[in-house]
Design a binder for these strands. Structure first.
Length: 485
RNA sequence: GGCCGGGUGGCGAAGUGGUCCAACGCAGAGGUCUGCAAAACCUUCAUUCGUGGGUUCAAAUCCCACCCCGGCCUCCA
């Protein structure tokens, strides 16, 4: 089986064939840097991170580009509110983004271009569009003439005439067609501005992705992703701009992930978004849950399906992740150390274990990134590990165990899961409760009491620890523990 | 109004014509193990897949109609 992906352009799954054999270019629309990121942003970044990991694991050389919008109305407004420069504001949130993504285990994109660093490329593309008669100057702004681009509406399935009749678009007398969108905005006093042939101003939002996509990935490339809400008008406009300028088909396959809904106490749900003020920032959640837990939660739904968010659901993900790490920890107890996460040898897996976990995982991922099914394979491996652990430690069992663990870590790595030291997972300390040392001191006391067969004291200490969210597991010769709060 | 995604067990979530297909996880129940626990293992937990019709030897899976949730059509991941 080879990878097939659902292409928003055409609305169907289709086999993915790289334009250049062995190589893939992917552009993902990043964030506008004016606030902290929420789960919805996390979902985009984690989803496409997994796609990139899977492409690489499949042997492809991937160039992953993800931009930052660091100039726009919201940034300007927020910077004025806070009395700081737009650079100061955007760089603060770009740093925050990078920190949050690292916590979620997102591999940094190869290139993270910023809009303000690509003014020449944007101006050049706008000029080309003007020269070709696809854009026009009007009242200090430059607009794209949508009715000059026949394919306009193809991606989003919209028809120009219908759009116009139901238009909620601002009436702007400078536009020839209400749907024309701005490529260059004439300068307003006290706003950041750059010189241009059409007067000082700043770029419109859509042009940056066209210009930077072309610059880093070429006039035609394979994959372009983002949230569903970007299909119209953002991606529609990107296509109009880029193909209008180059005259070539731009992106082969458009990928869009579903929304994260916020659910309120009454059970009502709505799309999580900044304007609705119903979002949870990633960093807020990271105080109580490990990034990997959030990651498992996100990946346990298919990337295109809508999903609900609630804190209770994160607890479920934590328990599930605990099961995976529980198996790894048990294996560590037998093997001494955990085997390295080796890159999975698919050919070997398919030959030796045609129905095995490796093959089933790969097939699930190849089917439009069916991560829930892939995760199910991880859990099957965990069960296998637990069984082997309970069966003893003969050389052949150890060998089998080693293989299982290596596979769990290797496959997990494609999802960005199971790569941590088990103790780090189990000892994650959410709100600065008791320190590890305090916990271990109490455990030592308790074990002393147990040696004296003073079970009353031992149980009292355990009860204390339980109250503090610490769960103990006694084995033959030592006690291990974890935080469960 | 146009277009799009979704409605599967107590919860989350795969599956999109027939093969242990109703996976997997969480929660629950019983058992084994344990000083007691915990973890793990074993067993159990939807004759049923929004509703009503239809097609078929066979449907959660295809067709029609309808209901509900969410979204896009303006900035939005």
């Amino acid at each position: 089986m080879t990878l097939s992906l659902y292409n928003s352009l055409g609305r169907q799954k289709q086999p993915f064939v790289p334009r250049v054999p062995g190589q893939v270019g992917i552009y993902v629309c990043g964030i506008t840097a004016y606030d902290f990121c929420h789960i919805g942003h996390a979902r985009v970044m984690v989803s496409f991170d997994v796609l990139v990991r899977h492409l690489r694991a499949s042997g492809l050389k991937v160039t992953h580009v993800c931009n930052f919008t660091d100039i726009d109305d919201k940034i300007i407004r927020r910077a004025i509110q806070e009395g700081i420069s737009i650079e100061a504001l955007s760089s603060r949130f770009i740093d925050a983004f990078d920190t949050d993504m690292a916590a979620l285990g997102v591999t940094p994109p190869d290139i993270q271009p910023k809009a303000t660093e690509h003014l020449p490329e944007m101006r050049a593309m706008i000029q080309t569009l003007i020269d070709k008669g696809l854009a026009y100057e009007s009242g200090g702004d430059v607009f794209y003439a949508v009715d000059r681009f026949p394919a306009y509406g193809l991606l989003s399935g919209k028809h120009l005439d219908e759009l116009e009749s139901g238009a909620r678009v601002d009436v702007d007398s400078r536009k020839r067609n209400p749907l024309d969108f701005v490529l260059w905005k004439g300068a307003k006093p006290d706003e950041p501005q750059w010189p241009s042939p059409w007067g000082a101003g700043r770029p419109g939002w859509h042009i940056e992705c066209s210009a930077m996509g072309v610059k880093y990935l070429g006039e035609s490339f394979d994959l372009h992703g983002g949230g569903r809400d970007l299909i119209f008008p953002h991606h529609e406009n990107e296509i109009a701009q880029t193909q209008g300028a180059t005259g070539k088909p731009w992106v082969t396959c458009w990928l869009h992930n579903g929304f994260v809904n916020a659910v309120d106490d009454a059970g009502n749900r709505e799309k999580m978004s900044k304007s609705l003020d119903n979002f949870r920032t990633i960093r807020e959640l990271l105080t109580a849950w490990r990034g990997e837990t959030i990651r498992l939660f996100l990946l346990n739904s298919h990337y295109r399906a809508p999903m609900d968010f609630s804190l209770e659901l994160l607890d479920g993900a934590r328990a599930g992740l605990g099961r995976l790490y529980g198996a790894l920890r048990a294996a560590e107890g037998i093997l001494g150390t955990l085997p390295e996460a080796y890159p999975v040898d698919w050919e070997h897996e398919r030959q030796e274990y045609p129905q095995g976990p490796g093959v089933r995982f790969r097939d699930a991922m190849d089917d439009d990134l069916n991560t829930p099914q892939a995760i199910a394979v991880l859990f099957e491996l965990a069960k296998g590990i637990n069984r082997l652990v309970s069966e003893g430690d003969s050389p052949s069992q150890r060998q089998e165990l080693t293989r299982h663990v290596a596979l769990l870590r290797g496959l997990g790595g494609i999802l960005g899961l199971c790569g941590e030291v088990p103790e780090v997972h189990f000892r994650f300390n959410p709100e600065g409760g008791w320190s590890d040392a305090e916990v271990e001191a109490l455990i030592a006391q308790r074990n002393e009491a147990r040696r004296n067969r003073d079970f009353q004291t031992a149980d009292r200490i355990r009860e204390e620890l339980t109250q503090a969210g610490i769960v103990l597991e006694d084995s033959r010769d030592h006690t291990i523990w974890r935080r469960e709060a």
